[in-house]
């Protein structure tokens, strides 16, 4: 039953396994995708798949935001000489959560991104599907899955940090086929 062993390797929490990841890359949707896939590999087994999916969603929305608003034209009207913003990403698994820090040299984050968000009243728009919003969900999703969201601007760089909480006692331990057989 190699499948069972594999499942155990992926899902069973190793108390000593607290991965750390740092990456530096230009803001681009394909690079964001590669980075998120790499993150899933690096952090597999360090928390439940549910937590890692929340982490992936929060990071995707954060990094997509830099890509979308990493305006190549600077405030001065000059085109950025060095391409899309340069992102630094740190992810650290620690007790109680997975901490993320994202910095970039794109345009400043508008203050209302971090303001508490509410969805538009669906009852007002569901009658008319053409009024449905197609965007604007990113920060709402980040605020839903992340905690301790904070932001500051220092010089030419944005600094954004958040934590994905991990309920350590509720991590699912997937029994291996060998363990199941041992119990029989």
């Amino acid at each position: 039953m190699t499948g069972g062993t594999e499942q155990c390797r992926l899902y069973k929490m190793d108390p000593d396994r607290q991965p750390v990841m740092h990456r530096q890359f230009r803001a681009d949707p394909s690079t964001v995708r590669d980075t998120l896939i790499f993150m899933r590999e690096q952090f597999a087994g360090s928390a439940s798949p549910e937590v890692l999916s929340r982490l992936e969603l929060a990071l995707a929305e954060t990094l997509n935001n830099v890509c979308q608003h990493g305006d190549p034209v600077l405030d001065s009207g000059r085109v950025r000489p060095d391409g899309p913003p340069l992102i630094h990403l740190w992810i650290v698994r620690h007790v109680g959560g997975i901490a993320c820090a994202v910095t970039d040299d794109g345009i400043p984050l508008p203050a209302d991104c971090l303001a508490p968000r509410a969805l538009r009243e669906l009852s007002l728009i569901s009658e008319d599907s053409l009024a449905l919003p197609e965007g604007g969900f990113g920060w709402f999703l980040i605020q839903n899955v992340a905690s301790s969201l904070s932001y500051f601007r220092e010089g030419p760089r944005n600094f954004l940090a958040f934590t994905i909480p991990v309920a350590e006692t509720q991590l699912p331990i997937v029994p291996t086929a060998a363990a199941e057989q041992a119990q029989v």
Partner: peptide
């Protein structure tokens, strides 16, 4: 296995 808000926006646009 994974969809972000841009994927959601695409599906809403298809629906509309």
């Amino acid at each position: 296995e994974f969809m972000d808000s841009s994927g959601l926006g695409a599906i809403i646009a298809i629906y509309k």
